[in-house]
């Protein structure tokens, strides 16, 4: 906790958890897709489902999907802007098992049909926790620079990625690896202290091309929240 957790964040109202956190959830989904989204199914659970209109949760999530930060006033007009930018969306109420009261599940696709399903909760003060990506249980906040790499569970993958980061002087703060089963789909969540350049992303991609260890030929990178440094 620092002083800007108390005086801050700067945000579009009315609710840090229902509006600012919702915008961040949308932005995470956009970053995980890595492309301009063209279709989104937004499923709202609990208090999100009950109060989304009055809190502008729908506008905030769609604003995030369009790339807006929580303090971007365009969030107010994001529903109209989605139409202009070719993003069609559906909003549904759902009941997710054992989920935090402010949880959204977003299924978002790009023009070539790539789809990511993200479940995340808004846990207060605009902070979020990403709970699930494409059916793999995860747990990260996005407050640090975060690298997300879906891969196939196999020896050497973690070593290769961490080796590349190390040779580029990127310090790993926290790292978790999740897998569905031995040798199956897996995902690496790496929180690092420095921003990751396109060049490093390219190096990781090249390693992938040589070794075919990724589920999909893509590296996903989520940058840190920018709101605090506005």
């Amino acid at each position: 906790m620092d002083v800007f957790d108390i005086i801050g964040p700067i945000m579009v109202g009315p609710s840090s958890s229902h509006t600012a956190g919702a915008a961040r959830i949308g932005k995470v989904a956009r970053n995980l897709l890595g492309q301009e989204p063209v279709e989104a199914i937004i499923e709202l659970h609990g208090s999100f489902a009950q109060t989304y209109k009055g809190h502008g949760t729908d506008r905030a999530i769609i604003g995030g999907l369009l790339g807006f930060e929580p303090d971007d006033l365009r969030i107010r007009d994001s529903l109209a802007m989605a139409a202009q930018k070719g993003l069609s969306y559906t909003i549904r109420k759902v009941n997710l098992k054992d989920a935090h009261p402010n949880t959204a599940r977003i299924t978002v696709s790009d023009y070539s049909g790539n789809t990511v399903v993200v479940t995340a909760s808004s846990v207060g003060g605009g902070n979020i926790v990403v709970k699930d990506i494409n059916g793999l249980e995860v747990d990260f906040t996005g407050r640090s620079h975060t690298i997300v790499i879906p891969h196939r569970d196999a020896p050497g993958v973690v070593a290769a990625v961490t080796g590349l980061l190390s040779s580029n002087h990127i310090n790993i703060g926290e790292m978790k690896v999740y897998r569905k089963r031995r040798g199956g789909d897996a995902i690496m969540i790496i929180e690092v202290d420095q921003a990751v350049s396109q060049d490093i992303a390219y190096q990781i991609l090249c390693w992938e091309t040589r070794h075919k260890r990724w589920v999909k030929a893509q590296m996903i990178y989520i940058s840190r929240w920018k709101t605090m440094q506005r």
């Binding site: 108390i6 005086i7 801050g8 579009v12 109202g13 840090s16 303090d71 003060g125 605009g126």
Partner: peptide, 18 residues
């Protein structure tokens, strides 16, 4: 009121008490 109407505010410490 600005907060309630989706204006930009600084949470201090929260949006509801800004």
């Amino acid at each position: 009121e600005s907060n309630a109407c989706m204006g930009r505010i600084v949470a201090a410490p929260t949006a509801g008490s800004c």
